[in-house]
Amino acid sequence: MAEKVRISVTVNGVQHTSEVEPRQLLVHYLRETLGLTGTHIGCDTSQCGACVVHVDGQAVKSCTVFAVQVDGSSLTTIEGLAKDGHYHPVQEGFWEKHGLQCGFCTPGMIMAAVDLLKKNPNPSEGEIRHALEGNLCRCTGYQNIVLAIQYAAAKLRGEPVTGAVADD
C-alpha cells in the first residue's frame, strides 16, 4: 500500500484534515471518510454524473478525481446546497416539477444544473439538454428535469414561477 498523504479540505463550510491513500477517489473520500453519502456512484467509467460535486465552485465528477488532488480546495456537495433551511432554487425546481423519481441521479443532476446556471443564467432548452450530457437519468426521460432547471433559472433571475402542475 502506498504511503498515505495528508490533505486538508473544506467541505460544505467545514474544514477536514485527513490522511488518505493516494488512490482513494474523491467520491469514496466524501462517502466513506466524511460520511457524506448524498454523492452517488452509478458507473465505473466516468459517464453517469451521479457523483458530481463542486470543487472551488466548479462541477466535477468526484469519481474521476483523487482526493489528494483537492487538497486545499473548498467543496460543496448536495448536502451543503440548501442554505439556512432554504432549498437552492434548483432543488426547489426538481421538487416542484417532478424532476426526480428514484432520486439516485438527482444529487449529481442538481449539482450539474447549479453549475450550468452559474455560467448561463438564461439557458435555452437545447442548452440545458446539452449541458446535461454528462448526467444520466433512467427514470424521468429528462423532460421534467429540463422544466425544473427552467424553473430554477427563472427564479434565480427573479422572475415569477409556477409550481407543480401537470403539463397537459
Binding site: 453519502t37 448524498g38 448536495i78 448536502e79 407543480a164
Partner: peptide, 23 residues
Amino acid sequence: KAIKRREDPKLIQGRGTFIDDIK
C-alpha cells in the same frame, strides 16, 4: 391533483439511504 411528491425532500438534499450508504 398534481401534488408534488412527499418522497422528494430527502432525495433532493442527498439524504436518502441507498444500499451503498449502509455502513
